[in-house]
Design a protein around this nucleic acid. Sequence first.
DNA 1: CAGCTGACAGATATTGAAATCTGTCAGCTG
DNA 2: CAGCTGACAGATTTCAATATCTGTCAGCTG
Lengths: 198, 198
Amino acid sequence: MATETLTAERILAATEDVLRQYGPTKATVVDVARALGVSHGSVYRHFRTKAALREAVTKRWLDRTTDELLRIVEDTSARAEDRLRRWNIHLFEAKRAKAGADPQLFATYEVLLRENSATVDEHIADLVGQLTAILEAGLDGGEFTLGSVEPARGARAVFDATVRFHDPVYAAQWTLPGIEQDLDAVLDLLLCGLRVRG
Amino acid sequence: MATETLTAERILAATEDVLRQYGPTKATVVDVARALGVSHGSVYRHFRTKAALREAVTKRWLDRTTDELLRIVEDTSARAEDRLRRWNIHLFEAKRAKAGADPQLFATYEVLLRENSATVDEHIADLVGQLTAILEAGLDGGEFTLGSVEPARGARAVFDATVRFHDPVYAAQWTLPGIEQDLDAVLDLLLCGLRVRG
DNA sequence: CAGCTGACAGATATTGAAATCTGTCAGCTG
DNA sequence: CAGCTGACAGATTTCAATATCTGTCAGCTG
């Protein structure tokens, strides 16, 4: 019976539960307020709109994956090529796990995509930024070559070339047999293009 | 007032017109029959279901692009690298032109995608087949290398890596500034990986 | 008086009855 | 008698009435 003060964090946690149970089409702000034992007016005191609340929950949820990926970026003991491959495979597996284990929150994320939400743009910018860091490490270490192409542009190309393995529109294909080999094949081709050869 | 006999071809042409005018959500089989001056029962004599009719129209429409692309595949005077690049750019521009000039037929195509239609699978198989032919030409001519990877698998990887530039789900992004450069960047990376280097 | 409530207006979603459409087929017609 | 028609049943869509939800705000409460 939550007698503590109402904080943004408590609202986010409650909203995540409500979204998980009802999904983005059925969950209402009144449901969230009821779960917290407050009136829905109080929720609007912390989040200006329902869309803002939905975005904040999804951002938190997406950031969990971004944090995991950051560990791969920062593992400077490994070669850039290994990190680039592991990073892409981890991103694929994390997205697939989210789609499978948290279908309602995944559906919420798909709603944001349809709304051209800034949260999604930021998430993509974060990911491309991490890829850029790996590419730059590979270029500095003499492991990669990009010719006259900017690292950020190369990172975007790698991200674009792997959309089938991380863009939610393809979620239905992520459980098909052979999908891992398809990702491996694309990564082989990309790494071939990046690698410095004798 | 069409007094000639009713053929599948005449029905397809009329259906294309009706779809162009009303779009896939509003066009009905009765509309098609009316355009032909026959009863809708006669249309069902040539196409078992409305879905079959929709598929046949879309197949005809997609095949026009496949035919154009085939000319690039068969232009053996050009280097494989040039053909691969031109083929991908032509596919992108053809899809973008269809989305812009024929929005209603493009929407019909999107309906088939949602239905997991065999027509779409065949269209994709056709395209990957053409890519395979270009890759094989490049391998035979000593221009490309794929290591131990099968040409068909490599072709699929190239197709997967360029989905952002031909899959209708991304149609909204095709008019964004810089999209051509994004495609160029991905093609540069892929060709780098395919090319035999000194 | 900071934070919360709950009544309210306008926007959005639900519902169920009516209208339309799909696909069939017995019979008509040239 | 091959090919077409149009009435029909069941499926789907439309539409308008009703219910619910979002977002605001004046005033309550601890």
